[in-house]
Design a protein around this nucleic acid. Structure first.
Length: 806
RNA sequence: GCCGAGAUGGCGGAAUUGGCAGACGCGCUGGACUCAAAAUCCAGUGAUCAUUGCGAUCGUGCGGGUUCGACCCCCGCUCUCGGCACCA
């Protein structure tokens, strides 16, 4: 029969499933290869063509490594908690569980239709109590180590949405809720927080050894934002008990500090403001509270603030300087207070100009009538620092501060602790009980998982708590002594389940521990992790944090989870724009699979361009890929299913060179995930076969093996038609013969002054001198050399000759 | 504003320890097959000029530089994309 993608693909998908062809053994006889896709969220929309790009890449690697005799772990599962299911459930009165199950079923159907070689026996699902038992277990370990704590955190509170709801930052647009446009206020609420900052240094330093894209590492470095400086303590004038500590990377400019600024929310403000200024301060604070973050930063570059009435004493010279509050100082960074050096900091400069505060230059350079000078230079007006450069001055002042107990070296991070609670139903319950006597305790490990209660009646609590607060039977508990308590109603964020899922694949059914240490020892770290760059920071940072924590507990054997990370690029619409429903340029993989088959989709997506680049979809391109697959099919098979006449038993040597070249290039390209050039080399080979009208059986078999990781269905089918009983997946990857790659002669380009004027054919063993002589004797070259004197001749062996003449 | 990545035919993209730019695919043109079409197979295809023949000139975002030789290295720009954005 002619190529029929439906028949072939269904046949082999069924075969793989029935035979569990890709079940991974835990026998540790072979070298392992763990290749992982980023955890998909099974949305109601299903897959779009961007998903299969990364999945195809990992699948090719998995199949390639199996044929290289590796023991391959290639799993998949579902990051299935999350907001959309909860919202859908609230709207329709269903439980999110059913909705989630339907979405997973749909995702699974789509993924299976693409022929990925996952080990389906290892499928995990974050919403499965057998899974989230261990998510809760990790939380309990963090709690025991003091890395999970509660704190008053400002949240986005939308009192008018669904009877009062906390919304995530992403759901706030211009200070209003994304849905409905209700106003959002900042409101402090008690939240669970994980102390990721305790790992900041290690998260930063260990990046160096990872084989990750440099851009991602850089993003993480920026996110962690380590900055080295000094703390400086200012006493408050006429208020002996008060001291204000500031952080500065430029302690050397201390003599130029002409005022302090505190964040409006800083509690010290209440202690120091004077009666006269109290009203102004409170008014300002009220104004700030109703501003969204966006208004405070993006929309408002204009500095604002008020004087507190208090003064601080500059420790280095005893000068009294005014204390202001201003929203350009963030309460969440450093100590929520700064020393302002307007002459040498642009932000302070703008503030000082606006409120007419003194600007004292302490470094030579720049023009402070125009802007702050932030560069290096000789210190002036700075007492004992005068004459020093920046670094010397910093070192000197820090020593001075230490000696006078007025400050010290200090490191600060932009990284904040991880707000870990969500006021949601559809997440892992946080296994904590708050007793009426004010104490709290963990749900004992033996009682985990703490199950999410079933309910058909999801309603907002109206208090900002999660809908779980409505479920009295679940919330209220009494211990054996009759003490009453309430369960924590906050649930975990979606990031929780996805921070350790890759560990569970290693031992998915273990009910005694996260995973057997022997298995973890064998499989970790993940050799290759592929996914989108949208997870550059959060997911990858959280997962690294948990991994390091588990490493410290002795649970995992490696410091880092993901050895190599690759970000696939985006697949854009045919109009070169990001695919989106509203632009109407979304391509559904189901349609492509129906019309052309999974092999065509896989081949096309890999041929479009480099995996890591963004590239536009092309309808003509997919047709071209399909056309080539049919061309390959016909190279092997006639319409009556017999082997094509091109395939011959004997090798006359015509394809020796191109075949061996192809094996070499394809092997090398796949190893380095350059699938587009691997495919183009195979196209060159096929073109050559059609040219010589012959394909020795040995090469036919080698070729279909090379192609099979990319287009596995026709790989299997053709392999079988070539007379093999066992599937192609665990056969041996082809080898090439270096001797067959050698040419006996080369074509050498001859340039005159850098311009190609002629070509020569020379033997491999021709000496430089011989080649030079041949080149100079060439007629065309001679013509070009008329009226010129040869100054120099450069001979690059087997490549070219350049004759320099004047 | 800061950090990072990038810019190559009509289109997607190849080629970088500096050595014949444009592999491969798409599109287009022509030929074979066909009553015809589709499919398939074969050939051509950067631009301009010359096409009677060889060919000539230009060409990898822009402007300089280094070199016998630059898509590749250096300096200065422009634009696009991604991230961060008052982090003291």
């Amino acid at each position: 029969m002619a190529y029929n993608h439906e028949k072939v693909e269904q046949k082999w998908q069924k075969y793989w499933e029935e035979n569990k062809t890709f079940r991974t053994s835990d026998k540790q006889e072979k070298e392992k290869y763990y290749v992982l896709d980023m955890f998909p969220y099974p949305s109601g929309q299903g897959l779009h063509v961007g998903h299969p790009e990364g999945y195809t890449a990992t699948d090719i690697m998995a199949r390639f490594k199996r044929m290289q005799n590796k023991n391959v772990l290639h799993p998949i599962g579902w990051d299935a908690f999350g907001l959309p299911a909860e919202q859908y459930a609230m709207k329709t009165g269903h439980n999110p569980r059913e909705f989630t199950q339907e979405n997973i079923a749909n995702f699974k159907r789509q993924i299976k239709s693409l022929g990925f070689s996952y080990d389906w026996d290892r499928e995990v699902n974050t919403t499965d109590p057998k899974y989230y038992k261990w998510t809760q277990w990790i939380f309990e370990q963090l709690y025991k180590k003091g890395l999970a704590y509660e704190d008053e955190i400002e949240v986005n509170w939308a009192p008018d949405l669904m009877g009062g709801t906390v919304v995530a930052n992403e759901e706030v647009v211009n200070g209003k809720t994304e849905r409905g446009g209700y106003p959002v206020y900042r409101k402090p609420m008690k939240q669970w927080v994980l102390k990721i900052t305790a790992y900041a240094d290690r998260l930063l330093d260990d990046l160096d050894d990872l084989d990750w894209p440099e851009s991602i590492k850089q993003m993480q470095r920026n996110w962690i934002g380590r900055s080295v400086g000094a703390s400086v303590k200012f006493k408050v004038a006429e208020n002996d008990n008060q001291e204000i500590e500031v952080f500065s990377t430029r302690a050397d400019t201390l003599f130029g500090a002409s005022y302090l600024v505190l964040a409006p929310e800083n509690p010290i403000v209440d202690q120091i403001m004077t009666e006269e200024q109290k009203e102004a301060v409170e008014k300002y604070r009220a104004k700030i509270a109703s501003k969204s973050d966006l208004e405070r930063t993006d929309l408002n570059k204009d500095k604002s603030g008020v004087f507190t009435g208090a003064y601080a004493i500059n420790p280095v010279n005893g000068k009294q300087i005014p204390i202001w509050i201003g929203d350009y100082v963030l309460s969440s960074y450093g100590t929520g207070a700064i020393m302002a050096v307007p002459a040498h900091d642009q932000r302070d400069y703008e503030f000082a100009k606006k409120f007419d505060l003194p600007i004292i230059p302490v470094i030579k350079g720049g023009d402070i009538s125009k802007e702050a000078y932030t560069g290096d230079g000789v210190h002036i007006n700075s007492g004992f620092l005068d004459g020093l450069g920046k670094q010397d001055a910093i070192d000197t002042i820090i020593k001075w501060l230490q000696n006078h107990h007025a400050g010290d070296k200090k490191v600060n991070y932009k990284l904040r602790d991880w707000i870990f609670s969500r006021q949601r139903y559809w997440g892992e319950p946080i296994p904590v009980i708050n007793w009426d006597d004010g104490t709290k305790s963990l749900v004992p490990e033996k009682d985990l998982p703490l199950r999410l209660p079933k309910t058909d009646n999801l309603k907002p609590s109206g208090t900002g708590e999660s809908p779980l607060a409505n479920l009295d039977d679940w919330v209220n508990v009494t211990d054996k002594n009759g003490r009453h308590g309430k369960r924590e109603t906050n649930t975990m964020p979606q990031w929780a389940g996805s921070s350790w899922y890759y560990l569970r694949y290693i031992d998915p059914d273990n009910d005694k521990m996260i995973a057997d240490p022997k298995k973890l020892d064998y499989w970790l770290p993940i050799d290759l992790y592929v996914g989108g760059a949208e997870h550059a920071v959060l997911h990858l940072l959280y997962a690294r944090f948990w991994h390091k924590f588990l490493y410290d507990l002795g649970v995992v054997p490696t410091k880092e989870p993901f050895k190599q990370l690759v970000n696939q690029g985006m697949i854009l619409g045919t109009n070169h724009e990001k695919m989106s429903k509203s632009k109407g340029n979304v391509v559904n993989p189901d349609d492509i699979v129906n019309e052309y088959g999974a092999d065509t989709l896989r081949l096309y997506e890999m041929f479009m361009g480099p995996l890591t680049e963004s590239k536009p979809w092309s309808t003509d391109g997919i047709v071209g890929a399909n056309r080539w697959i049919k061309r390959v099919w016909r190279m092997f098979l006639n319409d009556d299913d017999t082997l094509s006449d091109l395939i011959v038993a004997d090798n006359d040597g015509a394809l020796d060179k191109i075949y061996n070249q192809t094996v070499k290039k394809v092997t090398n390209d796949i190893e380095n995930m350059r699938f587009n050039t691997a495919i183009s080399q195979m196209m060159v080979f096929v073109n050559e076969v059609y040219k010589v009208q012959k394909l020795p059986k040995k090469y036919a078999e080698g070729f279909i093996k090379l192609l099979s990781p990319i287009t596995p269905h026709i790989g299997e089918e053709i392999w079988q038609k070539l007379g093999h009983e066992h599937p192609i997946d665990y056969t041996e990857w082809p080898k090439y013969d270096e001797n067959k790659l050698q040419d006996t002669s080369f074509e050498v380009a001859v340039q005159v002054n850098g311009k190609v004027r002629a070509h020569l054919t020379v033997g491999v063993d021709a000496s430089k001198e011989d080649v030079q002589t041949l080149a100079l004797e060439n007629e065309t070259v001679k013509d070009n050399l008329q009226d010129k004197t040869v100054k120099k001749v450069i001979v690059v062996p087997n490549k070219l000759v350049n004759i320099v003449a004047k």
